[in-house]
Every structure is written in C-alpha cells, then in structure tokens.
Design a protein around this nucleic acid. Structure first.
Ligand SMILES: [Zn+2]
Ligand SMILES: [Zn+2]
Ligand SMILES: [Zn+2]
Ligand SMILES: [Zn+2]
Lengths: 161, 161
DNA sequence: TTTTGATATGTTATATAATAACGTTTTTAC
DNA sequence: GTAAAAACGTTATTATATAACATATCAAAA
C-alpha cells in the first residue's frame, strides 16, 4: 500500500491536545444549543474529562475524579451525564471495554467504527462507509434489516507497530 | 435483491432444534478430544444450556438454572466454563449484551459477525469475509494492524420485519 | 413575579457482571 | 501408589449499572 495515501488518525504525543478538548466542548455547546438541550456544568466537565486523553475512559474513573472535586458525587451522576452525552452523540460507549470515548464526528451523522490499540490503549473513531455499507449489504443477504452496528477493532496502531 | 439468493439463517419456530443442540455438543466433543481438553459434565451442561435457544444467554441466567440442579453453584463455576468454551471457540460473548452464544462455525477458523434481532432476540452468527476483509483493508488505511474484530449488528430479522 | 411543570441533580439502596484467592477433589502421568 | 496438573468448591470482593424517590434548579405561563 502507498504510504502517502495512509491517513493516520492517531495523534502524536506532541500534538496540541488542548485544541482537541476545546473543539469537542465547542461542538458540544453548539449541538446542545441547536437541540435546546442543557449543557450543564456536570455534563460539560464529564465530556472534558473523557477528552482528557485519546483513550477510552471507565465510568468509575470519572466518578473517582469527580469525587475529588465534589465529594458527594455518586454513580447516577456519572451515568446520567454519560446517557445524555450518548443521546446527542457527543460520546460513544466501547461495548467490549465498558468504556467511553469522545465522538470525533459529533457535528454530522455517521456510523462510526473504533480502532483500539492494544499496546498504547489509544483509539480512533473512523467513519468508513465501505465498512458500514458492506455490513448492510451482507446482513441483507440473510434478510436482516440493519438498525445499528457495533464495530470495535483491536490491534496495533502505527506508532506501536 | 433476489429473494431466491437470500440465505436466511434465522431458524423457524418449528425447526428440529434438538438437532441443533446435538450437533453442537457433538462438535464440542470432537474439538475437545482433538485438543486433549476435558469436556466435563459442567462444561457440557453449560454449552447445552446456551444452545437451548437461539438467543444470547446471560451468565447469571445460567447460574440460576444450574443452582436449581445443584444448589452450591457459584459464579466462578459458570465463568470458568464460559472461559473454557470461549477458549476453544465453542461459544462467543456478545459484548454489547454481556451475553453468550453458541458458535455456529466451531469446526473451522472464522471471523464471526452477529446479527441480533431487537424484536425476538434471536441471533445468527455469519462469517462474512467481505465484512472482515473490508475492516482489515479500511483499518490499514489508517496504518492500523488488525488483530481482532467485534462486529455486532442490531435490527430486524426476516420473520420480524 | 409568583406559580407551576419540567428538567436536572442528590441520595440511598440494590441489581448485575466478573474475578481474586485459596482449599479440595479428580484426573492423568509416571 | 504417588505426584503433578487440572478442575471444581467456597468465600469474599471488585466492577458496572440502575431503581426509586427526594430536592433543587430552570423556564414558561399566569
Ligand atoms: Zn488530542
Ligand atoms: Zn462518533
Ligand atoms: Zn435450533
Ligand atoms: Zn463462531
């Protein structure tokens, strides 16, 4: 394969990650406004924490962090915000990890797939219509009408190979 | 699409399901023998219970059933057998449901995908090389080397449409 | 600007999923 | 028969998620 054609979506250690966070929060703000949904401080903080890294985050890790900031925080506080953020496609759940990630395509409709590196734990969300369409077509071969797809791909990212 | 070309893998209510179970147990027996792995009564019973339906089964549902048969059964008994059965590809875990299903291709290497009906809960495992290859190719576009894939597809099966 | 309904958050309790650690039994190999 | 390995029993705990109800906040209507 032509190296030049590779679009490496994995982030370098030295990228401007504050920009990733800012953009995510900004997008979230716009989307919530557009839907007249309230982007409350807790929801905002949880989204910010999820974007703190490019790795999937566990709900109870979020809980631990929030408890340091406000000691009466309980699981429902976290899960409610996670549910809200998922409802508006601002985050996704990685089912095979019970972990949550920021959505990279929140500003537009998409059917995401996740590449998760087993070495460094970094992930990227891709939106491959080739994958989603192939799944649609192949499922139809069995007379199955697809409503949603969970595609979680494990392996080694470019840096870790 | 040509209806005739559809290969509907979903089972009718009146199919000979005892044959499904027998075949699965039989295949398991052979595979365990070939690997000099012990197909113990507990492991056999759990595989049988998983094959009792064409629906994903929860670990604690298995536990409840086993407890009726032997009241000192505890979670590790179930999970150990599930781990064993997964190791030899006799069952798979549906990550998005925390549930377990019998493998339909245990006798040969495969990369399965799951079609799960949200109406009747029935599933089928397909082994589409189109899907698995597309995932491989698309991941490589991002410089990612695939080691494993989780593909869980939700929607409506032919009967429920 | 109070009332009121809706939404969000606080709080307590519990359900569900899975594993750690260690002891005992069973199986297999020698 | 004995020893090592594998399987299973047992107790405890960790991890993930939700139910149910109380209180607080917000926003629209009166
Ligand atoms: Zn970044
Ligand atoms: Zn997304
Ligand atoms: Zn059957
Ligand atoms: Zn399979």
């Amino acid at each position: 394969m032509n190296k030049i054609l590779e679009k490496n979506l994995f982030q370098n250690r030295d990228h401007n990650h504050q920009a990733c966070i800012s953009e995510a929060l900004d997008t979230a703000n716009k989307i919530c406004s557009a839907h007249e949904a309230r982007f409350t401080p807790i929801r905002r903080r949880i989204l910010e924490l999820i974007w703190k890294s490019h790795e999937p985050v566990l709900a109870y890790d979020l809980l631990r962090i929030l408890r340091r900031e406000k000691d009466n925080t309980e699981p429902p506080t976290v899960y409610r915000s996670l549910d809200f953020l998922m409802e508006y496609n601002l985050i996704h759940k990685i089912e095979s990890l019970n972990a949550y990630v920021g959505c990279s395509y929140a500003h537009r409709p998409h059917i995401g797939q996740f590449l998760i590196c087993t070495e460094c734990n970094q992930f990227v969300e891709i939106d491959s219509s080739k994958i989603s369409k192939t799944i649609l077509t192949e499922a139809r071969q069995s007379g199955f009408e697809v409503a949603s797809q969970t595609v979680e791909i494990y392996g080694q990212c470019p840096k870790c190979r």
